[in-house]
Amino acid sequence: MSLPEFDFHAPGTVEEACRMVAGFGAKAKIFAGGTDLMLDMRRNRISPEHVISIPGIEELKTLEIASGMLTIGACVTVARVVKSKEIAAKWGALCAGAKALGSCLVRNLATIGGNVVSARPAADIPPSLMAYGASLVLKKTSGERVVSINDFFTGTGSTAMGPDEILTRILVPEPPPHSGAGYVNLGIRNACDINILNVSSYIALDGPGGAIKDARIVMGCVAPTHVRVNSAEKLLIGEKPTDALFQRAGEAALNAATPRGSAYSRASAEYKKDMVKELTVRTLAMAYREAMGR
């Protein structure tokens, strides 16, 4: 199989890219890391008339931590996030998600932005971003807007991003003291695998040994998009963290999950539900361990 024919564009700036996106509309596809796009084109799932390649735009490759905010340019590769000691220290769950994404060869091309925008429920980057309360900067010719990642995914493969918009940066606030997060993905093989399921949890404690004052639990592959588990979060807030509490949160997550198990999906609904619980409990324990140490 070969790739469909298209015109290739490599804008030098975000502004130029925005103009192209606005001009071509639905006929264009953005090439960030290409790891998804190339497959979709090869398999004839899409055949864009225009491919707009953005990994050459410097502005989209910033990776910085300043005044309590981690800014990740959309075209920062997953490999760069894996290698960043600062991210590993403060945003461990994000780092775990990045490490879990594909093989090292894929990570060298795949971008953080691409993993978010492609909006696949098995994606490794969105769960922890949601758990950390990240927001996304979307830009078009007329200006930019910031949306919470919680409101970004509208369905499998679809997002709140307009056809004339480009994701430029991801803003991840620094987690407060006495908080922690965890990410676990479950595949068939030891690593480099496509997920059967993934869960990320975040909790913030009211001081060392205190009650939970904030919690976010995100699960993937149990619905068309990554989803927050409000029931489990509510149940945690105001309580002292214990194993039993985490079990109850896991139970709540299990009840909230509505996976569509079919012969063709990677696992049955029953298994996925049980795993939502298991991974919720595990990630909460990870989050708690981290919160106690910080």
């Binding site: 093989r189 030891n190 480099c192 496509i194």
Partner: peptide, 11 residues
């Protein structure tokens, strides 16, 4: 060879 899973170095 992504969804047909053969053994990788890590396995």
């Amino acid at each position: 060879l992504a969804e047909y899973k053969i053994t990788r170095a890590l396995d």
